[in-house]
């Protein structure tokens, strides 16, 4: 199915690209958000990633699935954006981070369960929340994760372990 749309785009039917946007925009947004932790930035990342995919469609050899190829672009774009964000404002120190947790704890009383989880994820390391996003929400295999992130198998597993531990830890602190 995707190949048909790809062929249509490559033959000049630009509107066929809407199919890819419709299919992948939300998942791409979740992945970008898990890394950059900001909705505005995540939206920009998704937009840039789609533009890159559109411009690079000719170079895509279709050996892998479009999904993996596109998510890889999203992940790379997100980390690039994260680097520029970090340059703009210095990274939050560990102390500030724990302050943020306290703040979240206070806000929690009035906030929904979903919003609380959202905040827990935003307090996690980008790599860790990305790993959780890909494995538990997108239900990708370790091999798919390796393709998308460029991590080794061992590294992927270590990050997943750390991510689970870290989520539980922040969750406990907030409850």
């Amino acid at each position: 199915m995707e190949n048909i749309y790809m062929d249509r785009v490559l033959s000049g039917d630009i509107d066929a690209f809407r199919y890819f946007i419709k299919t992948y925009k939300d998942m791409a947004f979740s992945i970008a958000f898990s890394i950059v932790k900001d909705e505005q930035y995540a939206e920009e990342v998704v937009q840039d990633a789609f533009m890159k995919a559109f411009n690079g469609l000719k170079k895509f050899h279709r050996k892998a699935a479009f999904k993996s190829w596109f998510y890889r672009i999203v992940v790379n774009e997100s980390f690039l954006r994260l680097r520029s964000i970090k340059k703009d404002r210095k990274m939050i120190s560990i102390e500030e981070q724990s302050d943020a947790i306290m703040e979240v704890q206070f806000e929690e009383i009035t906030e929904s369960h979903g919003a609380k989880i959202h905040k827990v994820l935003s307090l996690m390391e980008p790599k860790e929340s990305l790993a959780l996003e890909l494995f538990y929400l997108q239900e990708l295999s370790i091999n798919d994760m390796m393709q998308i992130t460029g991590w080794s198998k061992g590294n992927t597993k270590v990050i997943l372990h750390r991510a689970r531990k870290s989520l539980r830890h922040i969750w406990k602190q907030m409850s």
Partner: peptide, 18 residues
Amino acid sequence: ITSVLKHSDRKELLDDFE
């Protein structure tokens, strides 16, 4: 972890974005 993540508030991109 699965239940926690699945209950997270997720923003969906609107048609305007598309």
